[in-house]
Design a protein around this nucleic acid. Sequence first.
DNA 1: CTGAAAGCGCTAACAT
DNA 2: ATGTTAGCGCTTTCAG
Lengths: 337, 337
Amino acid sequence: MVAEASGVSTSTVSRVFSHPHRLKPSTVARVTQVAEELGYVPHHSARALSLGRMGTIGVLVPDIANPFFPPVIRAVQARAGQGGFSTLLADTDEDPARELELLSTLAQRTDGVVLVSSRLPEETVRERAGRHPLVLVNRDVDDVTRVLIDTGSGMRDAVDHLADLGHRTLVYVAGPEASWSNGERRRAVLEQSARRGIEATVLPSHRPEHEDGRRAVPEILASGAGAVIAFDDVLAQGVLAGLVERGVDVPGRVSVVGCDDIHAVRTVPPLTTIRGDSATAAARAVELLLEAVEHPDPDAGVVREVVPTTLVVRSSTARSGLGAEQGDNRAGDLDLR
Amino acid sequence: MVAEASGVSTSTVSRVFSHPHRLKPSTVARVTQVAEELGYVPHHSARALSLGRMGTIGVLVPDIANPFFPPVIRAVQARAGQGGFSTLLADTDEDPARELELLSTLAQRTDGVVLVSSRLPEETVRERAGRHPLVLVNRDVDDVTRVLIDTGSGMRDAVDHLADLGHRTLVYVAGPEASWSNGERRRAVLEQSARRGIEATVLPSHRPEHEDGRRAVPEILASGAGAVIAFDDVLAQGVLAGLVERGVDVPGRVSVVGCDDIHAVRTVPPLTTIRGDSATAAARAVELLLEAVEHPDPDAGVVREVVPTTLVVRSSTARSGLGAEQGDNRAGDLDLR
DNA sequence: CTGAAAGCGCTAACAT
DNA sequence: ATGTTAGCGCTTTCAG
């Protein structure tokens, strides 16, 4: 190795880059100097091979273009960086097959992976977690370490809020079938609606995309419901757009609530939504993962953490029937197709 | 290695995973079988060390939460995946110091990096490109391979469009100072405005964030300009929101144009903007990078490619003075602070 | 078609 | 405080 041009052994050079404090300051200085001049940089793979560690963790998300995920990814990167780890990111495009494939690839290249909003079957997740350090975010699988955002509770608050405003009918615009969050949210909405005497219906299976929300509007109007709760803010915003296009007053004629409080998405009117601290959840997941990576303890037991949510009331929800007298739109009845 | 439990040598196992066709099908089958059972997976770092290649490229972007980048990142991942490479992603948070640091880290862990919208000084970029395969997107530095999106030309079209609508005054809401795109766009707006006899002013230095756009509104109104061109759609959407809040009619009283055609961002009214194919640009960048990685040719010469843009006219721009008679807002004069 | 042996660049005992 | 010596797990001539 060229760095011995500074008259020391490879071990010394190695130490300069790993345990500088165990060396005479003068040598450190000299070697650093020479290395700098020669543009020498420790070879990462060699280091990883020798150390038996990659210094890298992976993050797998369903859709990097969904504004819910960037803050999560950022938080993962930030927390991993603090621990001296880099982050490998991959996007599954909401496709379970691709997710499994990428998970395998990631597993080979990292010391552990944070799997966010996995769409994989429970058994598969459990099986993968057995082979490799793995922590879940937004997915509740027994025997696998996970950190959950309790949007179910937020949904119950949302239903209460709507009930308090006098609403008796509501539709839940569902998200991806394979999403655990969607299951939680739907169940919470349905149960709490029953409890509060609200008639709730579900419009199933939407990709969390603006267009999907927009396209759900005819059905929403056809249902005649006075309120809609969407799986997330992206869908909610699409619903809002579709409603506005048809001249339906929000919140006068129908109230809309979203989920996740994606502030990057500004709406008119500002959306009532459910806020959970996804960044904290992500950071916690990384901490749990690094713990498992750095202190592998066979019988450490898995952890299940839950971060709370709160309902943020803005201007997209109002008293039921408020807009009735406006009578300026019967769009729902006109444009059902 | 455990895989010799199948009665062959390590070389054979290695070949099973690299050049299966050079082996007797029966051995391949047997070894694959055993490997599967034992859950054996080739050790990535060892492979990389031996091969002298990582099988990974890096992407560095200023802000993963800015909707302009996810499609770019996706395109990079997709194209890299086709070439059998994984993708390492990092986010610089618009901070040059962090960018340089991350670039070094990435360089160690990858075979090459795609540097998107770099905020680094030209000299630094050139210097880094000398050490490591590097291709730029949205940044024009001599002697470094790059693919550019020609938004300058789009901006000229936008100015023409506005001029044709009778506008005589305009303000350009600038993006990050260190952004090459911003430089190009500002220059194009200024030059074309001069050419068309439009009086153009610049509101400098904004982060491409909704809030920053919103906050620029008082100054925009104070300028009395009838049109605003924003650095990008994120800022434009912020401007729109700020304008709406103050009851300023768009496009009646002021026309607004954005840039990038970030369709995830729906606005009311739909935004006139400049569309460029960022995904294609990103994919090209990866192709160029992989070419350099796979066929390192010292005197290959750098490449400079430009992808074109088009002006997409929607509903946020209209004839100058259209809304004058509405007289329902003098918000600009009232709310200057 | 397959085995044996050397080496990729680094780190970690083990000397000294 | 530093040099020596083995590997880390894989790929690859070179033999057979």
